[in-house]
Design a protein around this nucleic acid. Structure first.
Lengths: 175, 175
DNA sequence: GTTAGTGCAAACCTTTTGCAGCTCT
DNA sequence: AGAGCTGCAAAAGGTTTGCACTAAC
């Protein structure tokens, strides 16, 4: 069961808690991951086979507009879809490995300072903010060095391809 | 004419400088704005009516993978398309007003610190990074207050709608 | 002369919309 | 009871792909 925060917030604002929304809310809130609409849909379908993909999109849109979830792109790793997470935690950056897809979260003082400076220097009223960093995690830096070594020994022409992020297994769509 | 930087970089790597690419490179490099593929296509068509939209996408993809341009989302203001800018300047955040669409760039120490901390604390090799902030610019904060006042005097039910970002004139697509 | 790049048409993926019917409160 | 939601089908927006032809080097 999900933390009651989101549901209470919705109830207070007169949003109806349908069976479908309860399922989706629980999934988003307890997954602890960054799910996209399709993943969410697949998971929700197991609990309610009738639940429609459109309902997922409509629910996400509502939660986003209510400021209850944040929408991420994760540097378009894996495609052009969006990812979602509940807005409970402190503001943080998402650091994504373009080789293995691992997402690390980075909390720290620079994030708060940036926010503060934008508000003060620009007189800006911030509603949402997002920092995403793409590159190679410590493990994949090593793996990539090996890949390139192997390639160098076998076929130099392949080196060009290796310069671009290797296609990770998790990738679902077009290259 | 564009700064020679991008073209030289491509030439050195054996990328062919076709008429179409020259047009697109000049546009991206000299516009000084954040253009999306469609805007770029419309501008390029004026210089070469035969130039195809697909060529715009292919060129942008190549420049992106070469690290010569950065891809932005600008908080999906105006839709789900991407915006592009040359990677000449210092790293900076994009601060976008969700009411009028104005994009301000924010340079500052927190951006560098964040980058450094991610590299050091996570042992991460950064290839690209992006910070986007959405909200209301100083001017639109005032305008919104007025809108809400007017609404309050005329029709309270409308207040709900006003709580969400007003649809700006620049918006091209679906609400 | 090669090989990379282009245009065209068609596909693709993700997300939104219109509408009739269902269901929370 | 009735406004708010859902499901279904269809469309839309943005981007990519296959292939035959063209042009840069």
């Amino acid at each position: 069961m999900a933390h009651p925060g989101i549901k209470d917030s919705l109830r207070e604002r007169g949003v109806r808690l349908t069976r479908q929304r309860r399922i989706l809310l629980d999934l988003i809130d307890t997954s602890g991951q960054h799910l996209d609409a399709e993943q969410l849909f697949q998971m929700a379908k197991k609990k309610d086979p009738k639940l429609n993909r459109v309902t997922v999109y409509r629910t996400l849109k509502m939660l986003k507009q209510s400021g209850l979830v944040d929408e991420l792109d994760l540097m378009h790793y894996g495609g052009d879809q969006h990812y979602y997470e509940t807005r409970l935690k402190q503001e943080h950056a998402h650091v994504i490995c373009l080789r293995c897809g691992k997402v690390e979260e980075f909390f720290g003082e620079p994030i708060h300072k940036l926010r503060k400076q934008v508000e003060e220097n620009l007189g800006f009223q911030i509603l949402l903010a997002r920092t995403e960093v793409g590159g190679y995690c410590s493990n994949c830096q090593i793996m990539r060095a090996r890949e390139i070594d192997i390639v160098r020994e076998t076929d130099l022409a392949e080196l060009e391809k290796a310069e671009q992020p290797a296609s990770p297994a998790a990738k679902r769509k077009r290259a």
